[in-house]
């Protein structure tokens, strides 16, 4: 699908396959799935709604991170308390970052489940 091999090439070049083996996959079973694959206006609306919900989840997590990371240096500069810096940056930051990541993944996967349920709502007649 990248185009024909150049005409002066004597034989088609040997292509090395790095992809997963092509499986025979079922045709879309649901109307919305077909709409998405045909890229109709309706299918496009479906994808946009998914992207919006995912972007909202991402921006929420990022806003929280940016808020904390943006204010902490100022707070440290005014407090002038080295022990606080050690405790927050040396220990507390890592579990909090992992928790935030875990929360985000749960929310993103829930968004995808909800979306899949929405799409599968109406089988192809």
């Amino acid at each position: 699908m990248t185009g024909e091999p150049a005409s002066r090439q004597p034989a088609p070049r040997r292509e090395v396959v790095t992809g997963e083996p092509r499986r025979v996959r079922p045709l879309p079973r649901y109307r919305a799935q077909a709409e998405i694959e045909e890229q109709t206006a309706l299918g496009d609306a479906y994808v946009r709604s998914l992207m919006r919900s995912q972007l909202r989840a991402g921006l929420t997590a990022f806003a929280l991170l940016a808020l904390v990371a943006g204010t902490l240096p100022l707070a440290f500069a005014t407090l002038r308390d080295a022990t606080a810096v050690w405790v927050v940056l040396g220990f507390a930051a890592y579990p909090l970052l992992t928790l935030l990541a875990w929360w985000y993944v749960r929310r993103a996967e829930r968004n995808e489940r909800d979306f899949a349920r929405l799409v599968k709502g109406r089988p192809v007649p």
């Binding site: 699908m1 990248t2 185009g3 091999p5 790095t18």
Partner: peptide, 11 residues
């Protein structure tokens, strides 16, 4: 789809 390693640059 099982294309070449550098299919972006083929041709």
């Amino acid at each position: 789809t099982g294309s070449g390693t550098g299919m972006g640059g083929a041709g």
